[in-house]
Nucleic acid binder design. Structure first.
Lengths: 199, 199
DNA sequence: ATGCAAAATTTCAATGCATGAAATTCGTTT
DNA sequence: AAACGAATTTCATGCATTGAAATTTTGCAT
């Protein structure tokens, strides 16, 4: 499993991701072609598609792992923990994990977020991935509370929480506010979702 | 404004929409080309793009009007009405408006929904449009309760409500349940968003 | 009615994403 | 080192999208 072949594939994958991120940032998303990305990673254009399904997907290379992490979290409530508790903890956990110390990672992560926010096709792709993941999370939540949360309630709960956080965070980012404010907004939004709308 | 020119444009627009919907349903979304749609509407392929921004957009021809209707609704709360009341009424109003009696409309509407649910690029486009509209709705809601709902709270409220309804409805539709059940799910989801998560 | 100007459409050409199939190179296995 | 399979490249093609120039259609003034 750790033969040369595997290592080479991982290196190519990395090269494609980094070339794409760099070129997108330098010259813009639309303006960089797949041919340029492939050339920068020293593979043929065709090979790009054996690593990623399309031009947009190269920026979402880690979405599946993130989803699985979230699924694992929701699948294992502590004894006595209510759905509301679990979901609130989940948000808190996600927010604290996101300020992961590493320098270079955080910078790439910021670049990527800016790109996704700026480019409509990337935004659409991100929303679609997020939506699909919510369906899976809802199923997991319902399964984690058998007999207590039916599929519709679980879907409503997950949709409400993520919908609130998503829109609140995006609102602060559009206003150009810094990441800490976005984090605050996320917490306030989670409160709204957990406790109900302001009266 | 109601000259021959305008009427002709509207007719062409309709022809494109109907041709697209028919062909998409008959042969599938990917399988029908813009050239075929244009031919069926008796215009050149290039002309398609002076009516719609892209292949996907032809199915979302009425999104702007729907958004404006929603914006108008949220901009004018009755005296004494709380944000929660207003949002709940908004959902209820939307649900009852949606079973608009007309036969042919409802059929086209169903076809369109099925297409959007089945085709990933259409789903992504729909989610993106919905997201943008939520940003506008949140701004309107915040403006409708000046001093009472800041931008973040309004965003959280709108995101929570629409997020809950969206995911709950989609869950029922994926399960193949009929529209009435989807309506019920929407109401239950709205309750979850308005009152908070199940405890 | 006739002709002019603006608006809309068509024609033409080019680019880039995406995909299938055949040919080739490369890593692994024996 | 030969054979096998996986990965890559090459080649060919379809389709969406866009710009620019040429042409047609429409509204309007004379």
């Amino acid at each position: 499993m750790v033969g040369l072949r595997e290592r080479k594939k991982q290196r190519t994958r990395r090269a494609l991701i980094e070339a794409a991120l760099r070129l997108f940032s330098e010259k813009g998303y639309e303006e960089t072609t797949l041919a340029e990305i492939a050339a920068a990673a020293e593979v043929s254009t065709r090979t790009f598609f054996s690593y990623f399904a399309g031009k947009e997907d190269v920026l979402f290379y880690d979405s599946e792992q993130q989803i699985e992490r979230a699924l694992a979290y929701l699948a294992a409530p502590a004894p006595g923990q209510t759905p509301a508790d679990l979901l609130r903890d989940f948000i808190e956990d996600t927010l604290s994990t996101s300020d992961d110390g590493r320098e270079s990672w955080s910078e790439q992560s910021t670049l990527r977020l800016e790109l996704i926010m700026r480019e409509p096709p990337l935004q659409a792709r991100a929303l679609h991935l997020l939506f699909d993941s919510q369906l899976r999370l809802a199923a997991a939540l319902s399964a984690a509370f058998p007999g207590r949360l039916d599929r519709v309630e679980a879907a409503a709960a997950v949709g409400s929480l993520i919908g609130a956080v998503k829109l609140a965070v995006m609102t602060t980012l559009i206003d150009g506010l810094p990441v800490e404010q976005a984090r605050d907004a996320a917490r306030r939004a989670a409160d709204v979702a957990v406790h109900g709308l302001p009266r």
